[in-house]
Design a protein around this nucleic acid. Structure first.
Lengths: 240, 240
DNA sequence: ATTGTAAGGTTGTCTGATAACCTTATATGG
DNA sequence: CCATATAAGGTTATCAGACAACCTTACAAT
């Protein structure tokens, strides 16, 4: 018995958009070039103009084309396109580790900057996150969320929004992966030490000592990596 | 005389999508919740169904909602949404510096990892980038591009794709900003020292000495910051 | 030479209809 | 009673055609 994928034609506009997107990213259409008119494309592809319009709308949304009413649709200059990162990639262990590896220097730097720049408000939010971690006795979904909130709060305290965005993204993905992959039972016994590490980090930030904050964050992340059975090179010997 | 930009009411569907997007990101609509039907929205907003459809299509491709034919449109779970970073943010000097500040730890880490993991191919690509930098006598657009290629090549040599993606994004934005803001004349006289720094970095990577590679990258970035008249805290005293 | 006007083409929006699809309720047969 | 089939209604997906808004170009008017 063979079920074979029924080509659910997964959204007609998306397929058309994908095809045009490939034409653009692979260089068959150059920046500044004008796309055929909607009428032409509709006729050529054998679909209605609505479908073509939706496809073009998607391309516009992805930043690949710009449209001007009464004129046409044009391929955008490459540098105007936004970055976009899908998930689905961190399913395997390799990419999980890669993501963690990316996280380490960012978080360490953030801790240092947070020590320098945090406001009273920032510190209050960090303390709140810490409280909600200690409060709940369980290292369940809420614990994971609280951890995420804590790291976000630290990132926010840098006063640099890029750190918030990037760390928020990374930490969230990692927390999710942990949530999915690890048994809660294993993690419960190590929750205390984790909280200790967080408290140490919080105090270092509060004392406005960037060096100590960086060290505390580094210790925390290395501890986390160890608990997750990850090995990170270059951090046993690195001086800071 | 003031002309002020005429508010071209910039695309009806985009405004509607924006409004709904705000409802979602600001928590007024919860993940899993069903949106009103297209008919209802069209009636309620006083526009045609086409416009509503286009708005929803935009939300779908931003990953904020999912639609199921014959059922409806639903707010997606937050963790399924892709990250997306527009430019438009780094117009002012503040965010330019913020971006640079984010770049520093990433590039330093990447240099260390590149020293550990680079293959012969990676090194070849780094050398090629270096050659095209030294080759062109001018620090024009081509010079900027070559610099970008160099940093990308280093990032690729880490063997960690996340570094490639993030650094690629950041470096490109920064290079563009430099291209736009700085006079080429000023930069021409310092091109030699920049190339020297790149060569030092390349050699450190080639010798598979992560500590030296990190240091070389750090020196390069601090030098670049200085040339751009940026001040980065925490790097005069930080040990590594 | 500058300004006004008309024409044609393209995207934006509207309207209405049909197809494909899902859910739920009801009927049917065991 | 239970499982399956069928029907009904609602929703999104697609189609078709029209008009509106807008831009460009060419040409006429001043």
């Amino acid at each position: 018995m063979e079920f074979g994928h029924i080509r659910r034609s997964e959204h007609l506009p998306a397929r058309i958009a994908g095809q045009i997107a490939r034409d653009i990213t692979e260089g068959r259409m150059r920046p500044g070039e004008k796309l055929p008119t909607e009428h032409f494309l509709a006729k050529a592809l054998g679909v209605s103009r609505s479908v073509v319009r939706e496809a073009i709308a998607q391309l516009r949304n992805e930043g690949l084309v710009e449209t001007r009413q009464g004129v046409g649709a044009f391929v955008t200059e490459a540098h105007a396109r936004p970055i976009r990162i899908e998930q689905d990639d961190l399913a395997d262990r390799q990419s999980f580790r890669d993501l963690f590896q990316l996280r380490v220097p960012l978080e360490i730097e953030a801790a240092g900057l947070a020590a320098l720049h945090h406001t009273a408000d920032d510190l209050r939010r960090i303390d709140e996150a810490l409280a909600s971690m200690s409060g709940g006795e369980k290292w369940t979904a809420e614990g994971i969320v609280a951890d995420l909130v804590f790291h976000r709060a630290v990132a926010a305290a840098t006063g640099n929004e890029y750190f918030s965005v990037f760390i928020g993204f990374i930490a969230e993905r990692i927390s999710l992966a942990i949530d999915a992959a690890r048994a809660a039972a294993v993690l419960e016994e190590i929750v205390e030490v984790t909280i200790e590490e967080h408290v140490a980090l919080r105090d270092a930030i509060a004392s406005r000592d960037p060096k100590r904050a960086r060290k505390a964050m580094k210790m925390h992340l290395l501890g986390a990596a160890k608990r997750l059975d990850l090995t990170l090179e270059g951090y046993e010997v690195a001086s800071d």
